[in-house]
C-alpha cells in the first residue's frame, strides 16, 4: 500500500535524546520513500476535511478517535487503529492486513453515507489549499 497523504497532529521540533538517529521522519522517507501531502495540523478538522476531499485515498487509517467520521462521509473506508500494538510481529502484520481488507471490501456503509452526509463546510473553503490559514499560506 502507498501513503498518498497524511494529517499529523504534531511534529516534534527536537529529536528524542537530542540524537539525529532519532529523526524518525527522515528514517521513514529513506526506507519507504517520500510522503506527499504531508500535513501537520493540531487536530484541525477543517484542514483534515479539506485535504481528504482533495486526495480521496482508497482507505483512511486513523490513529486518533473521532477522525474516521470525515473519511466515512466522503465515502472513504476508514479504520481506527485503536490498539497501536495490533500490528506487531509477523502475526500482527497478517492480522492488520486482514483488518484492512475487511474495511476496504465492506465499504457499503460509507458509500451509502457519502450520498446523504451532512456537510457544513462552505464550497469556498473546500476549494482552498488546506494550509490557507497558516503563516505564509497562499489565499484566494
Amino acid at each position: 500500500m502507498k501513503a498518498v497523504g497524511a494529517a499529523i497532529f504534531h511534529h516534534d521540533p527536537i529529536y528524542d535524546s537530542g540524537r539525529e538517529e532519532n529523526d524518525q521522519l527522515a528514517q521513514r522517507v529513506a526506507d519507504y520513500g517520500n510522503v506527499f501531502n504531508y500535513n501537520v495540523c493540531n487536530k484541525q478538522e477543517f484542514e483534515l476535511v479539506n485535504a481528504l476531499n482533495r486526495i480521496r485515498p482508497d482507505v483512511l487509517l486513523a490513529r486518533h478517535g473521532g477522525m474516521t467520521l470525515w473519511g466515512a462521509k466522503l465515502g472513504i473506508p476508514s479504520l481506527l487503529i485503536g490498539d497501536e500494538h495490533y500490528s506487531m510481529g509477523y502475526e500482527g502484520l497478517v492480522n492488520y492486513g486482514e483488518r484492512l481488507l475487511e474495511v476496504i471490501e465492506n465499504d457499503e456503509f460509507v458509500k451509502n453515507l457519502e450520498k446523504h452526509a451532512i456537510n457544513p463546510y462552505t464550497k469556498w473553503w473546500l476549494e482552498q489549499p488546506p494550509y490557507y490559514f497558516l503563516k505564509g499560506g497562499a489565499g484566494r
Binding site: A62, G65, G66, T68, L69, A72, K73, S78, L79, L80, G82, E102, N106, F109, L113, H116, A117, I118
Partner: peptide
Amino acid sequence: YYEEIDNLATFLLEFRYGLPN
C-alpha cells in the same frame, strides 16, 4: 433520519470493544 446516522457514524466505526460485523 440521516441526521441520526451522521451522529451515529463515529460509534459504528470506532467503538473499541467490538461490534458485530
